[in-house]
Deep mutational scan, measured.
Amino acid sequence: QIFVKTLTGKTITLEVEPSDTIENVKAKIQDKEGIPPDQQRLIFAGKQLEDGRTLSDYNIQKESTLHLVL
C-alpha cells in the first residue's frame, strides 16, 4: 500500500502493486475521493509523475507517500 497526502492534509491509503501505472493510481484516487484523474497531479520526491509510467519506474515502494496537487 502507499499513502497519498492531499493539500488539505488528508491522507488516503491505496492498495497498489509496483506494476501499477500512475494512471491506474489516479483512477483509484477517483474511486475513493471522486476527483477526476485529469485534475490530479501526483508528486513524489519533488517530481511530477507521468501517467504512462509505473510506480516501480519511480522507485515508489510500499509505505511511500505521494503528494496530490489539484
Rank of each mutant, 00 (worst) to 15 (best):
I43S: 11
I43H: 10
L7A: 15
D38Y: 12
Y58K: 01
H67N: 08
L42Q: 00
L66I: 13
F3A: 04
Y58F: 04
T21M: 07
I60E: 01
T65H: 10
P18M: 14
I35S: 04
T65C: 10
E63H: 15
K47Q: 15
K10M: 11
I60N: 01
N59F: 07
T6I: 12
S19P: 03
E15Q: 14
Q61R: 11
E23I: 11
P37Y: 12
G46I: 02
T6K: 05
Y58N: 02
D51P: 07
Q1M: 11
Y58G: 01
K32I: 11
Y58T: 02
T54D: 03
N59G: 12
R53M: 13
V16C: 10
P36M: 07
T13I: 14
K47I: 15
E23K: 13
P18W: 15
S56A: 11
Q48Y: 13
T13K: 08
E17C: 14
F44Y: 13
I60D: 01
K5W: 06
D20K: 02
V4L: 05
G34I: 02
T54K: 11
N24Y: 11
T54R: 11
S64W: 05
D38T: 09
G9R: 02
I12M: 06
D38N: 11
L66C: 01
Y58Q: 04
L49C: 05
S64R: 03
V25N: 00
L14R: 00
L14F: 05
T11S: 07
A45R: 11
L42M: 03
E17N: 14
D51G: 06
Q40P: 01
V25G: 00
D51R: 04
G46K: 04
P36V: 06
Q48E: 15
F3M: 05
V69L: 14
S19D: 12
R41G: 07
P18Y: 13
R53E: 05
V16Q: 02
I29M: 03
K47T: 12
I43W: 13
V25S: 00
I2H: 01
L66G: 02
P18T: 08
T13Y: 07
K5G: 04
I29P: 00
L70E: 10
S19Q: 09
S64Y: 10
D20V: 04
Q61G: 15
Q40W: 06
D31M: 15
L14I: 15
D38H: 15
Y58H: 04
S64K: 03
A45M: 14
V69R: 08
L42H: 00
G52R: 09
N59C: 10
F44L: 05
H67W: 09
A45I: 06
K26H: 02
A27G: 09
R53F: 15
Q48H: 10
K32A: 11
V4Q: 00
T8C: 14
K28E: 03
K28I: 06
T21C: 05
R53I: 06
T54M: 10
G46M: 05
I43E: 13
Q48S: 11
R41T: 15
N24C: 15
E17A: 11
G46D: 07
L14M: 04
P37H: 12
Y58I: 03
K28A: 07
T13C: 13
L70I: 12
L66P: 02
I35M: 05
E15D: 13
L42D: 00
F44S: 03
H67C: 14
